[in-house]
Amino acid sequence: MQHGKHQSATAVVAKVPGGKHPGVKQPRVKLSTRQKMERAYHQYGFPLGFLALPVVIYAIFVISPFVQSIYYSFTDWTGLSSDFKMVGFKNYDWLLHDDLFWTAVGHNVLLLLVVPLVTLGLGLFFAFMLNVGGRSKKNAAVSGVRGSSIYKVVYFFPQVLSIAIVALLFQFTYNPRNGALNAFLGGIGLDSLQQEWLADPKLALWCLMVVMVWCNVGFYVVLFSAGMSAIPKDFYEAALLDGANRITTFFRITLPLLWDTVQTGWIYMGILALDAFAVVQIMTVGPGGPADSTQVLGYMVYTKTFRDGQAGRATAIGVAMLIVTLIFAVIVGRLGRRERLEY
């Protein structure tokens, strides 16, 4: 992005340092007011016209509800009637002293760290296997495994299913009595590994993470695999010749070249992980349990708004969620400052 310092709206943008957009602006000196306006129209008319509709729709349906929500977080709104008053920072004070809130924050942070990491890691791993793991052929230093297109199709399956459906499916899978998982473990003689899964506070959150990872790995396999197949084979060949092994080629060639894609995926996964609402609501004991072991901020917003009629507090939690996300985005942004390679 350009570091354009914008002058006030009436002034003509005379020069943009390092301007990369020729055909858009030509520097000029000394203009009459009318000319200035014409130029301003000429210059900004097109961007304005193109932006107007998206910005208006976005402002009405996204920005304004969110700003209203932030306003509500300073009220004692119940969510059930339009009768409420301002209470200052009371909801935030409650929040900071609520044990459940901090438990939920902890779980959200864990989800934010683990789910994207594991999903993207597995995605990269399988994509690498698909593209580079094959038996070597004549004339090719590296080659994909046979049937890689079938894998890509199959792996993508969970991604096209609604999360509500997936959550429901896994709820049955985890069922301790006749769920597929325990039945399977029993069937292959591993009875000792049978667990209560979602009913065990030590395992429940991890069970949810498995579902979130299960859903999304396929998408990143396809995405990364596409990226990898676009990396010229010569790079690998050269590296291999140079004495590098496949692991080094992965970290020295594949990963740096895919970094942008990984970063986009990271942000996307992070947002998904933060919103663990559907899996918590559909799958867990309580929901949110056992013993609050799967409480997350999204579900708390939901229960406070809808079950307890404390929408003021709920919106305060929502604002906290926003802050967690922003911190996450800043961290990912910093990771993105890594040196980039181009080809």
Binding site: P65, V301, V319
Partner: peptide
């Protein structure tokens, strides 16, 4: 991208 949709639901309903 970082707005939790659930936060906006009820005001959005009014809009």
């Amino acid at each position: 991208m970082s707005f939790p949709v659930i936060l906006a639901l009820v005001p959005l309903f009014f809009v």
